[in-house]
Design a protein around this nucleic acid. Structure first.
Lengths: 343, 343
DNA sequence: GTGAAAGCGCTAACAT
DNA sequence: ATGTTAGCGCTTTCAC
């Protein structure tokens, strides 16, 4: 069962033509007579010929390969980005190299090195923006286009695709306001998070837009990231019982907030009751649409549209490959509001 | 800024040696004098020479590339598998081609085709076991080793790495029994799920092992997969109030069960009270360790060890690449019990 | 319309 | 210890 490698020569022999002819038939470039073409096609079928990518690439063509550097594919957002990327590339008959820079990975620069060695046509840097400039320089030196895909940020001079966190927060907050809420808090996220900063901007802007006050003491940071959120939310609600809605930074925070609401003796969901103290607290949270676990809860969710970010990054990269001299652009992907029927 | 490609010839010229010498230095194979070696190394540094993988591969070496076929990288289990795979491969200076077969993907066979065209040294088929035989045949025809990584199953004649679902269920169930529970139900999962079948086996076996009865009516299937689990669990608990513990099929089910318990007027957590009706219901659930959202709940979790499955699959594949004639093996990866302090 | 031949960058005999 | 050289499989002028 040792597979013998079928080359273009074998096909040429079998069809009784020259390798040139076979090459031309395969690529459909030269004009070859229908008969010859047919004979060659048949020989290809019979022999099961598969062109050798390495040889093609070596000869001077593009490799058809795109490299992806991601910190950790298990992060739901970047998993979605990866999936979107892969979708688009596969549709283009391209393939995707996956390298992880974080956790046990080799660091984004080494990952880039590794990708360049493989002769990729382009690189997508997902997250890892700290090392963006290094990777950028390395890619530029090799003449390989680079596009970033991230949750947030503002690296100048690079192509960057990211979700519109500000809009996401506006959608979430606006939805709550529309439901009648006037006392809304933002809970969760690390103070150093850029994503959070952008969202807070949208949160704040929306409040002001509706003539509602922005109260800094109603913005709660989560320090250990996913710990004790329930207690914090409970404390917040006990101190400020007038709060009727929470905007939650991520899935973990949302769940923590959920229990915090319950522990505070309130219930979750629904619209605000005009002018009255409401026992209910409405929740709106950010996260990927795919957060199955929370799907059943009565809350409004805003997806960061990771998949779309991935798709767009792929598009942009393909553009850059076509036109390497193009000016860097920032693409912002609109989030998606998944409103839950008020109950 | 158009990068001129530095080849081995440039290095040879710059160092005043022949290409052979450079090649030997790079690969560390022939014995070359320290001085020459140093000169070559320096030339490499100065010029920024990066060996061209395509050329190496074309010449006859291995491509150093492994292909992965996965239905959907966003599935947490397979994301972990992917990560584990990537870790090991990167440590071996290899890279990973990612193709998605499901969702918008091209189907596992087409994915395999695409990978083979790229000249991969081996393929990992993650999930998609339905198409296993086809892919296997295709890979065999190309003389490329294939290893499967999956949640469950028993494909004969193929290398397969999977989590030990039975053991996982034994761990979860055993833990509950050790905590004093005698009335335990299994909730969630589709009836057609192989993973679930394996887990039920372990569940049942553990009950019998401890002399506890296995009651089929305490096994609840989730039809629409993630819907209405709370109601089902509530109904179960109301009908059989003697139940004090639940084994939950996945993260979504666990959360549903959590609310089901609350809705039934019980509380979640802790040990069984000897011989008494317990208002508390203990929960044990399966899932990846990374299910952040649930991390704060008082429940016992058993991880399917996806990352370890990925690592093992990589190991196995590397073995197969070394020894293509080896007999197929099934590797089973032990799950990990993450007990929660009883409260 | 089709073929002959020159490499792409690299490795591995085979010289020296 | 190093250099010469013949390809790996393919595309692409340039002939015919």
């Amino acid at each position: 069962m040792t597979a013998k490698k079928i080359t273009i020569n074998d096909v040429a022999d079998h069809a009784g033509v020259s390798v040139t002819t076979v090459s031309l038939v395969v690529s459909g470039k030269g004009r070859i007579s229908p008969q010859t073409s047919a004979r060659v096609q048949q020989a290809i079928q019979v022999l099961g010929y598969v062109p050798n990518r390495q040889a093609v690439t070596l000869r001077g063509g593009r490799s058809g390969v795109i490299g992806l550097i991601v910190r950790d594919v298990c992060d739901p957002f970047y998993a979605e980005v990866t999936a979107g990327l892969s979708e688009v590339l596969e549709a283009q008959a391209r393939v995707l190299f996956l390298t992880q820079s974080g956790r046990e990975g080799l660091g984004s620069l080494r990952a880039a090195e590794s990708l360049l060695k493989q002769g990729v046509d382009g690189i997508v840097l997902a997250g890892n923006l700290l090392h963006g400039p290094d990777v950028r320089q390395r890619a530029a030196a090799a003449g390989v286009p680079l596009v970033c895909a991230a949750r947030a940020n503002a690296l100048e001079g690079m192509d960057l695709v990211r979700p519109d966190n500000q809009l996401a927060a506006r959608l979430a907050t606006g939805h709550l306001v529309t439901e009648g809420h006037k006392q809304i808090a933002y809970v969760g996220g690390a103070g150093s998070s850029l994503t959070r900063a952008e969202r807070l901007g949208g949160f704040c802007a929306t409040l002001l837009q509706y003539g509602l006050p922005f109260r800094p003491e109603w913005v709660v940071e989560s320090e250990a990231y996913r710990h004790g959120m329930a207690a914090k939310v409970e404390a917040l609600l006990r101190r400020y019982p007038q709060i009727t809605a929470l905007v939650c930074h991520d899935a973990a925070v949302t769940l923590g907030a959920y229990f915090g609401v319950l522990n505070a003796g309130r219930s979750v969901g629904g619209q605000a009751l005009e002018g009255l103290y409401s026992p209910q607290v409405a929740l709106a949270g950010f996260g990927e649409g795919a957060d199955d676990a929370l799907a059943e809860l009565p809350l409004t969710r805003v997806s960061a549209a990771g998949r779309e970010v991935g798709r767009s990054a792929a598009q942009r990269l393909l553009q850059r490959i076509e036109d390497p001299e193009a000016m860097p652009q920032q693409w912002v992907v609109a989030p998606e509001l998944i409103a839950h029927a008020p109950g």
